[in-house]
Design a binder for these strands. Structure first.
Lengths: 157, 157
DNA sequence: TCTACCGTTGACGTAAACGTTAAGGGCTGA
DNA sequence: TCAGCCCTTAACGTTTACGTCAACGGTAGA
């Protein structure tokens, strides 16, 4: 039996765009498009140009998908969220480089503000959805009540 | 059949498309478009053909807007929701017309099923959003902790 | 009576978010 | 060596969700 050398054996932490697409439920075109728009950071590349995605990239992709499909964000909105997140990340890593405490504080405040806005947005959506849920639940129980009533009517008929 | 309002009938509870647009925050074009797509039921008309919206219509418009902007539904998805709701409404009003109890029961079951599916969809979205909220809240408290820490450092410096 | 304004339908235009196709190259198993 | 994949970029096509414009009519005020 010939030994099969999978690319995964060479670098198990990297996956191709085809696999990334399959696992994320997006198309290859969409992944490239998101990268082009700046929603995903350019992944590593193999010498001849093929993209190599990491588990972290997949995580990011999943996050973008959630924002789009579940929260209904436009790609533009997602981009601003992603940019804010990048700023946060930069803050974390750049924390030690920055000598001025005052500047550190300001950056921290900025990051907190951005996060707060996003949090409020999500909270607002949750409230609206719960109202919707309540209404639906009320409708449903009404139907069920009437169904059992009708079934009893049929039996006692 | 669309109700046609005679001129003498036109009462203050009816508003023009211009006002409906202004109050709902949509454009006239959008209102006509939604009507065309079947998201809004054709409003009453004045003899000349001008649309007359009621408070109920405005309510419906607001609901559509919430689904679109807050929940991120596409117009197609909204249409299916609206159709389901119309079916429910029809059940309620048509309840007395239907003579066959068995058919009534079936319709009830259908309506309950539709509502249940919508309910589950909303519940799922809520769960995902709460996860997102949690993550954001965690980030935020982290920032705040560090901010107060840094502010103390500045003071004791 | 004229002008300004609000409304109508219909047709065409447009931005966003991809899908699809073209044209090409690398790797691998038979 | 070559078919069968998977990959690349580039360009054009498509759908959704409206915007915009044209051509027209009623109504109210000067």
């Amino acid at each position: 039996m010939t030994k099969v050398i999978e690319r995964a054996e060479v670098a198990p932490e990297y996956i191709s765009i085809g696999e990334a697409a399959e696992r994320s439920g997006l198309t290859q075109r969409t992944l490239r498009y998101y990268e082009e728009l700046g929603l995903l950071k350019p992944p590593a590349r193999v010498a001849r140009g093929q993209r190599l995605y990491t588990a972290g990239d997949l995580e990011r992709i999943a996050q973008v998908r959630r924002m789009k499909d579940l929260l209904g964000f436009t790609l533009g909105e997602i981009k601003s969220v992603v940019e804010a997140e990048e700023a946060k990340q930069q803050l974390r890593t750049g924390y030690k480089q920055e000598r001025s405490i005052k500047r550190k504080l300001k950056q921290m405040h900025d990051a907190a503000e951005i996060t707060e806005r996003q949090l409020r947005l999500v909270e607002e959506k949750i409230v609206q959805m719960q109202a919707m849920k309540k209404e639906l639940a009320r409708d449903l129980s009404g139907f069920r009540e009437r169904i059992t009533q009708m079934e009893q009517d049929v039996q006692t008929q």
